[in-house]
C-alpha cells in the first residue's frame, strides 16, 4: 500500500468504525503517515471544537412557533403553485386555441381554396405546437427553477429528489415574454402579443 492510499484511508480510521487492515499495517510501519494521521486528527478536533460545538438553542418559544410557521408557508406555497399551474394550463389552452384559430381562419379564407401552401404551413404549425405541449411544462419549470429567489436551486440532485417547482416572484413578468416567444416561436408577433395580453389578464 502506498502512502497516498493509506492517507485516503484516514476517513475510515477517524470514523471510529473498522479500518482497513492494510491501512493500519501501513501506519504501523510508516512514521510519516502516522504523523500525518496525528495532524489529521488534530485538524478535525480543532474544527469540531470551533465550528462543530453545540449550536445555540433558539429556545422553546422558537420551537413552539416552528410547526405553525411551516404550515403557513406550506399554505402560501400551495396557493402560489396552484396559481402558476393554472397559468401554465391557460397558456397551453390559449396556444391551442390561437393556433387552431389561425388554421380555422385559413380554412374559411377564400384564398385557401386556391393556395395550398398557407394551409399546409398552418397545419404544420398546429402539429408542432401540439408536439411541444407535453414538453412545455418541464421546459418552463427549468427556467423558473433557475430564477428561484428562495433557493436558487440548480442542483440536479435536489431537482430529481423533490421534483417540485418553486415559481419565482414576479412570475408573470419574467415568464411571459421571452419564454413564451421561444416556446411559441411558430406564432406571429401579433399572436404572441395577444397571448401575452391574455396571460396578463389571467394572472391578474
Amino acid at each position: 500500500m502506498t502512502c497516498e492510499q493509506a492517507r485516503l484511508g484516514f476517513a475510515d480510521v477517524t470514523a471510529g468504525g473498522p479500518a482497513d487492515a492494510a491501512v493500519v499495517e501501513h501506519l504501523r510501519i510508516c512514521a510519516a503517515c502516522a504523523e500525518e494521521l496525528r495532524v489529521f486528527r488534530a485538524v478535525l478536533e480543532e474544527a469540531s471544537r470551533c465550528a462543530g460545538a453545540d449550536i445555540p438553542d433558539p429556545g422553546e418559544a422558537y420551537w413552539d412557533r416552528f410547526l405553525p410557521s411551516v404550515r403557513e408557508r406550506v399554505a402560501l406555497h400551495r396557493t402560489t403553485a396552484d396559481r402558476s399551474r393554472a397559468s401554465l394550463r391557460a397558456v397551453a389552452a390559449a396556444t391551442l386555441l390561437m393556433v387552431a384559430g389561425s388554421v380555422g381562419a385559413l380554412l374559411l379564407s377564400p384564398e385557401s381554396a386556391h393556395h395550398g401552401d398557407p394551409l399546409l404551413a398552418a397545419g404544420h404549425r398546429l402539429d408542432e405546437a401540439l408536439e411541444r405541449m407535453p414538453g412545455l411544462l418541464p421546459e418552463v419549470a427549468g427556467d423558473m427553477l433557475g430564477t428561484d429567489p428562495i433557493g436558487d436551486v440548480t442542483d440536479r440532485q435536489i431537482l430529481d429528489s423533490i421534483e417540485e417547482i418553486e415559481p419565482p416572484r414576479g412570475f408573470a413578468q419574467e415568464w411571459s415574454s421571452d419564454d413564451v416567444e421561444r416556446m411559441l416561436g411558430q406564432l406571429t408577433a401579433e399572436q404572441v402579443a395577444r397571448l401575452k395580453a391574455d396571460l396578463a389578464t389571467d394572472l391578474g
Partner: peptide, 10 residues
C-alpha cells in the same frame, strides 16, 4: 422551514 415546505410538496 423551506425544507419542510418542499418536503410537503414532494
Amino acid at each position: 422551514q423551506e425544507t419542510f415546505c418542499r418536503a410537503y410538496s414532494a
